[in-house]
Design a protein around this nucleic acid. Sequence first.
DNA 1: ACTTTAACGTTAAACATTTGACAGAGCTTG
DNA 2: CAAGCTCTGTCAAATGTTTAACGTTAAAGT
Lengths: 215, 215
Amino acid sequence: MNTEDMTRLKIPVAVVRRMPKYLTQAQYLRQEGVQWVSSLSLAEALGLTSSTVRQDLSHIDFQGVSKRGYSTVGLEAALARTLGVDHDITCILVGAGNLGRALALHEGFGRQGFKIVGVFDSSPAVVGKKVGHFIVRPMADLVAVVAQQKVEIGILSVPHEAAQAVADQLILSRVRGLLNLTTAHLRTPAAVPVVDTRVLSSLRELAYSVRSRQV
Amino acid sequence: MNTEDMTRLKIPVAVVRRMPKYLTQAQYLRQEGVQWVSSLSLAEALGLTSSTVRQDLSHIDFQGVSKRGYSTVGLEAALARTLGVDHDITCILVGAGNLGRALALHEGFGRQGFKIVGVFDSSPAVVGKKVGHFIVRPMADLVAVVAQQKVEIGILSVPHEAAQAVADQLILSRVRGLLNLTTAHLRTPAAVPVVDTRVLSSLRELAYSVRSRQV
DNA sequence: ACTTTAACGTTAAACATTTGACAGAGCTTG
DNA sequence: CAAGCTCTGTCAAATGTTTAACGTTAAAGT
């Protein structure tokens, strides 16, 4: 089958969710100077089966090599291309509380191409204050900044009561996707995807796992 | 079928992942004074089908009522019991960088029963400093604190190069589960579950969604 | 009391994901 | 230069998840 065709086909969500992990691993190996990686060693590193890895990687426009595996450099590039993170993506952050400030100060995302170009807050007490090298801006500036800087992603770290209203503002300002750090479930038009980070949910899931394994 | 039996059966992972969301929603409705909620309105609030909601809730030891739906109070209690968050769970946090400090300062987790009882860091420059009302402790204190305070969950917010080594120390100190905020994949014995929060992965997943929808 | 109705709980079919199995490709070695 | 080996890519079976459909229950109205 033509690989060009493959990549046009819709990639299953389960596969898309694993791709960032393959990308992280490929970057990591490449930085360590490893040139080739097999589906088996990727699987062992990520807690999967080699079969799953091969099946997953068949969805990207990139070929492994018999007897060697996958080139770490090629894999990294192909995954980045497939995910759309082979170029910078501009983001804004709304909500300059503890979590929001931590994310704004975290340099890791910027290194991975997610460039924060503005920090917003609705509280007059916070607007104008500095967060790292950002000056917190009022919500009224949202539309203009999104338009001028071609912002693609809005990151929400507001109290959950305010989440839906802020999400609506972000959508109106024509942001293309939302990263939701709140516990609220956001309702958005189909054209605006939302990914939840679920920190509290993860803790609760963990509580269940811890408990059900103690038996 | 006897519901007592049901709850002993293993709950599918997909269902466990949704339960925290149902719990959040039930709490929220109860706080607003809503007494009953139907599978359909839960579904609409969380972006699911009513069928999924009913199927999911059939796994907990709690019954809905014909023509009314589920009691928000009862639902909240049953979900909390099932997840094991009906009592406090002690946690420690390792890594007092930006993200770690933000989590330590965030009061929401404490209100939900996840009590942080210690903040640790390996850097002598950080040990001894204050983070909120915590004084950052050295890694050497880990074992003693976990034993004395019966710590169940370790939260990792260290640089990813250090993640596996710190995870190993936490496991040795007999923590029962790990919340992983790093991009590293952690390898643990089967008895020690790990839940990843995947903030960077979520951003990448979002980048893919945004891109594949622009067509 | 009886009918209507709005909900749940359960079944089974549809759909999605994961896994095992194996043919084929291309290094490597003698 | 052929044999052997190790790895990929793909197929199909097994497993897991979601959904629609429907029988059942209990409240509400007549």
